[in-house]
Structure formats: C-alpha cells, structure tokens
Design a protein around this nucleic acid. Sequence first.
DNA 1: TGCCAGGCCCTCTTTAGGGCCTT
Length: 207
Amino acid sequence: MLANSIVVLDFETTGLSPDQGDRAIEIGAVKLDKGVITDRFQALMNPGRRISSFIEHYTGINNRMLAVAPTCAKVMTDFSNFIGSSNLLAHNAAFDSRFLAAEFSRLGQLVQGEFACSLLLARRIYQDAPNHKLGTLIDYKNIPSEGNFHRALFDAEMTAELWLIMLNDLCERYGIEHIPFSLVKKLARTPKAQVNKLLTNYAAKVS
DNA sequence: TGCCAGGCCCTCTTTAGGGCCTT
C-alpha cells in the first residue's frame, strides 16, 4: 500500500492535444490515503467554445451543460488547491499530464507532484489482458463498475481501484507489504523483461 | 491549400514504421 497521499485524476477534453488548442471540459479526481479514497473532486468547466458532436457523444457532456459551467480558470484554481503537493496518477498519464500542465500554465502555475501511469504499469504486469484500455482492465480484474466510463470522476475512481489492485497483486506475487511510489514510477519505465528482476531484488532487500 | 497529438513500445529496429492508449 502507498504510505503518502496520491491524487488520481482524469480529464474530459475538447480533443487530444492542448498544443492544438484543445481545452479541458471536466476534471474528476479522488485522493488516496494509505490505499483508501478519502476525498473526491468533480467539476465541469466552460472552455469558451462549443464542443464537437463527437465529444458530446463520447462523454455525454453537451454544450448546454458547459454553457452554465464555471470557467476553466475557476475550476482549475480550485483543483490546484485540492491536489496541493500530492503525487499524481492517471491512466495514460502522458495525456492527462499535458492537459494539467496546459491548464495550470494559463494560471501561471506549475504542476508540483510527480505523475505515475496505471497504463504503463498494467502493460507490464497484466501482459495476458486482451488490451490495456481502462474499461477492459476493469473487466479483466472483475472490479465492480456501476457508472459511466468517459466521465471524469468515474474514470478516476476506476483508475484508483485498478491501481490498488495492481499494487496488491504485486505485493502478493513478491511477498512484500508495501510498494513505494518511487518504485512504481521506476517500474513503469523498466523494460518488461527486467520487471521481475527489479521486484525480486526489491523483495529480497526489504525482507 | 493542406495539414492536423504525443509518448510508449514492439519489431520484419536503431539510417523506421506502426499499433496502442488518452479525448
């Protein structure tokens, strides 16, 4: 289990690339303390433009909902206070970290916490899974899921549940009680063929 | 007018290409 708090987050956005002008339209997040969800954050935000019909269908978020939502600046300021200096986690963190950095940049802020990625970890430890999409992994691990995928808070909650199960699986597999955040980050950058060796060595060191 | 993401990771690789993930 993790000793320190970690914020698991998920963005819904107008598209795939903040560098191409895409903006966040919803942020959802849960805070994990010692393996337990202790807080939640969810907010729609008005990106100042209409979103495409594709995004409306993909997320279930429509232009009428966003027209009455607070601005990105307001929501992201609140979210900055929520995450503080916590470490961060997302499924395909490369995506969410780009949007978080872009929205924070508009506020003149920098992201403080370090990102871990549940997708990179899942690719290493669940190599038999049909694929490594969030929804597939939730089914693969038989995690109860009543809600709408592609909504930010639900995806963040599911990512958190998946994360805890991955850590638990690793602890059981290697006979260890705790996997520090720094080790998980290192694991996600380790070639698949060396993952077993890294964890075996760690288990021997802490036993 | 034409183009349009980016990072990871595998392989028929490294002087590259393409699938997987995220919206």
